[in-house]
């Protein structure tokens, strides 16, 4: 019971994939122009993450160690295609606005990283909880950014009526995405510093390697060199 609680807390707060670990940034910025798109993207990525976690945990004993990465990729790509076609068939407007970013879930580092770091080592139930909580962390982050950008940039929330005229259009454009994300990340870090007394000093390069599934490969390479 305690472990479940720990996994949930870690996914949503302590190791929030986007805001703390800095992985999966592309959809985080690109699909947050409106809150609706953000919800769609968040749900799609959570679905793929949870399903691939479950399946990989299920077959973890029969996967030969050397080819685990290609197998993870095939599993993730399969679920991504399922999501892609389902959205195309049942939510055509969402598929138009998310465009190429749905197929790109396959290279979202969060999913491969969780498969390698968690699902291939833990049982099905824990992997399921981990998928939901990591996906939840991503979902939360992208929806917060989506609401901020939509509110400031088009003056609406979830496609409602315009709350005020003359919104700051820049917020839905690319520069606004970077700006809003920068502010959100700074605030998160401020809160983190306040809550957790010991301040972690995150150096620049390795923090993006932390969650990366290829970290071990890079380390090995550096050692050999």
């Amino acid at each position: 019971m305690r472990k479940i609680f720990e996994i949930i807390l870690r996914g949503i707060l302590k190791e929030n994939p986007v805001l703390i670990m800095m992985i999966g940034l592309c959809p985080f910025l690109a699909c947050s122009t409106t809150a609706n798109d953000a919800v769609g993207m968040g749900l799609a990525a959570t679905f793929v993450l949870t399903c691939s976690n479950i399946l990989i945990s299920l077959i973890r004993r029969i996967i030969p160690h050397n080819i685990r990465i290609p197998i993870f990729i095939v599993v993730i790509a399969t679920f991504t295609t399922i999501v892609d076609y389902t959205i195309k068939a049942y939510f055509p407007t969402l598929s138009e606005s998310l465009g190429v970013f749905i197929p790109l879930i396959v290279v979202n580092c969060i999913i491969l990283a969780r498969a390698e770091a968690f699902a291939s080592k833990n049982n099905i139930f824990y992997s399921f909880v981990d998928g939901i909580s990591m996906g939840g962390g991503f979902f939360l982050a992208i929806v917060i950014l989506g609401i901020i950008r939509e509110l400031l940039g088009s003056g609406t929330i979830f496609g409602s009526k315009e709350l005020f005229s003359y919104p700051a259009v820049i917020m839905v454009l690319p520069p606004g995405g970077f700006l809003a994300a920068g502010v959100v990340i700074t605030i998160t870090k401020y809160i983190e510093n306040k809550l957790i007394k010991k301040t972690k000093i995150i150096s620049n390069l390795p923090s993006s390697c932390e969650g990366c599934s290829l970290k071990s490969t890079c380390m090995e390479f550096l050692k050999n060199k």
Binding site: P175, F178, T186, K189
Partner: peptide
């Protein structure tokens, strides 16, 4: 400030760069 160090300021800087590309 401590909180802006690292990624916070990097994102804001890239916002300015993106603005200039716009």
């Amino acid at each position: 400030p401590n909180a802006a160090k690292g990624y916070g300021i990097v994102f804001v800087t890239s916002a300015l760069m993106s603005l200039s590309f716009m």
